[in-house]
Computed example of a mutant assay.
Amino acid sequence: MNCCRSPKNSAEFTKYYQLRWKMLREPWQQPVGSEKDDLEEQSYHRMIINSKDEVLAVGRLERNGQHQGKIRYMAVSETTSGQGLGRQLVVELEALAQQLGITQIVLEAREKAVGFYEKLGYLQVNKSHLLFNEIQHFTMQKSLSAHDNHHAELVNELQNTWHDTIPMSKAMNIEISYYDKAKLITHCDPAFNKNLHQTMFAGSIYTLATLTGWGWVYLQLKQAELEGDIVLANADIKYRAPIKGTAHCQLDFEEVIGELTSLKEGKKAKMQVMANLYSGDKVAATFHGQFAVLPKKSS
């Protein structure tokens, strides 16, 4: 059975890039290595792989900014052409983009692929570059609706609370792009949060992670119909790699320890969370925080 996911290890990445080169570079006598660029480390890679660990199709999503993404390097194996794998891959990349808060996808389509993308809702913008003096490309784009969030009202309340009470969160333009009780994803404006090295400022990474953790506790309080003052009691962050593009922060329910029922008895509650900052598919920083929730004093 086929599975669409990101490559898990170096061996799978080798197969991933091999198919990209074989379909997009080898026919035009381009050397191995020409199938890669400088954005590989900060992009989202997806492949369709079968039960025999054969890579059947590949594609990449990169971010041009906080709300725009670009699909590139789409390739399907000759042996599986016509089986709908290309469509499956685009749908997967679009769903990922929606979770990340991307509202517009752009791409450069080869002339023979224009019809394929038009069937998926992409519109031609203009005639683009000529690759290898032979392959005409066309710029195409598609608007994506916001992720269908059943907790939209609650999420908007949290985001407005940040922007109204924490000036830094508004300046960073911290936004929530996804929440489903099991996962919370946030992101911020990459241009505002860059340092002199053109990577994400460490203080911005810490702020985004801290507010994501605080926000998780806030959402749990609201859903449990409880009240309390949330304070950060202890925190630690490990910076693993520089973030050159647009980061997103993700907090998963499995990484949360603690509960809030003690608030019903007027006692303090505690929650420990872990959140990861991602540059593309890779974890660039890991935040551990312990939050205390203090019961509201009756007036």
Rank of each mutant, 00 (worst) to 15 (best):
N2P: 15
C3H: 13
R5I: 03
P7E: 02
K8P: 10
T14V: 09
K15V: 05
K15N: 12
L19V: 06
R20E: 05
M23S: 12
L24T: 07
P31T: 07
Y44Q: 06
H45S: 03
H45A: 06
R46E: 06
I48R: 00
I48K: 02
N50Y: 10
K52L: 08
K52R: 08
L56V: 03
R60F: 01
E62Q: 14
K70I: 07
T80K: 13
S81V: 14
G82N: 10
G82D: 11
G84A: 11
L85H: 05
L89G: 01
V90W: 03
E92H: 14
I105T: 03
V106Y: 12
R110M: 14
A113G: 01
V114G: 01
V114A: 05
V114N: 03
G115K: 12
G115F: 05
G115L: 05
Y117T: 02
G121W: 02
Y122G: 02
L123P: 09
L130K: 10
E134Q: 15
T139I: 14
Q141V: 10
K142R: 10
S145H: 15
S145I: 14
L158K: 05
T161L: 13
W162L: 11
I166Y: 09
I166Q: 01
P167G: 13
S169V: 05
K170S: 10
M172G: 00
E175D: 12
S177T: 11
Y179W: 09
D180T: 06
K181G: 04
T186H: 08
H187T: 05
D189L: 06
K194P: 00
M200P: 01
G203T: 09
G203E: 11
I205V: 15
A209Q: 02
L211F: 09
L211V: 15
T212L: 04
T212H: 02
W216K: 00
E225K: 14
L226I: 06
I230T: 07
V231T: 06
L232D: 04
A233E: 09
A235P: 01
Y239K: 08
A241C: 09
G245I: 04
T246D: 07
H248G: 04
C249P: 00
L251G: 04
F253T: 13
G258T: 03
L263C: 10
K264P: 11
K267D: 07
A269R: 00
Q272L: 14
V273Y: 00
V273T: 10
A275L: 00
G280Y: 00
K282E: 12
G289F: 03
Q290D: 14
F291R: 01
L294I: 10
L294T: 11
P295Y: 04
K297Y: 14
K297Q: 15
S298W: 08
